[in-house]
């Protein structure tokens, strides 16, 4: 495992920790899109179908469990915790995420490496992960006061896939059997590109020492 991949995973982990910290300590999920969180839970379920059958390393298995468990605990907090659920801005979270699921499923059925259940579900998870942040980005744009934890959460999440892209370039150059991953690369590129606008305003607010606010 190269440094880009490891740093990417750590950024991903950090984003989840930051979000859980906000929810657990502040007892608030203000500004967080439940729809994006639902999509991520679905992404992890579909991608990690092999969690008990396809052992790669202890690291991989533990990370998979952590991502699945954190995704479901976030969903539980936002939907069932009696204090946290009242801080959820349902009216601001209006993205039609079922259309994303449908579109990604159709695309996965049409464009995949192999037509098997496992492979199509895996491909679906790759497509869905690329666009899962959209409800959250739309919600951020509507939120006048984005708190630091929410801003950092989205920033770490964007950095994660950006580092994965460097990892792909590194692996492409250093590994012999690493040339067939175009499907992941295109999706990963789109996923990272979706954050470009957010990154711009995040860095700008950080440099000017101002509160993060996205233009409507």
């Amino acid at each position: 495992m190269n440094i880009f991949r490891f740093a990417g995973d750590m950024m991903h982990l950090l984003s989840v920790v930051v979000l859980l910290l906000k929810i657990h300590k502040m007892k608030s999920c203000a500004g967080i899109s439940l729809k994006t969180q639902e999509l991520y839970a679905l992404v992890f379920i579909c991608r990690y179908l092999d969690i008990f059958t396809g052992f790669i390393s202890l690291y991989n298995t533990i990370m998979k469990i952590v991502f699945l468990a954190s995704a479901f605990s976030i969903l539980w907090y936002m939907r069932s915790h009696k204090v946290v659920r009242q801080t959820y801005d349902k009216d601001q979270d209006t993205f039609r995420h079922y259309f994303l699921i449908l579109a990604c499923m159709v695309l996965a059925l049409l464009v995949h490496h192999k037509f098997t259940f496992r492979e199509v579900m895996w491909t679906f998870s790759i497509y869905l992960e690329a666009v899962a942040i959209l409800p959250q980005l739309v919600m951020l744009q509507r939120t006048r006061n984005i708190d630091n934890l929410t801003g950092n959460y989205v920033f770490f999440l964007g950095t994660y896939r950006g580092l994965y892209m460097l990892n792909w370039v590194y692996r492409y150059l250093t590994e012999v059997h690493y040339h067939h991953r175009w499907l992941t690369w295109i999706s990963g590129f789109i996923q990272t590109a979706l954050y470009a606008d957010f990154f711009y305003y995040y860095v700008k607010s950080w440099r000017n020492n101002e509160k993060l606010q996205l233009p409507a």
């Binding site: 396809g54 790669i56 990370m63 490496h113 994965y164 990892n167 991953r181």
Partner: peptide
């Protein structure tokens, strides 16, 4: 290329 090789990323 083996199946496992392609799925070693998270």
């Amino acid at each position: 290329i083996s199946e496992a090789d392609a799925k070693d990323e998270l």
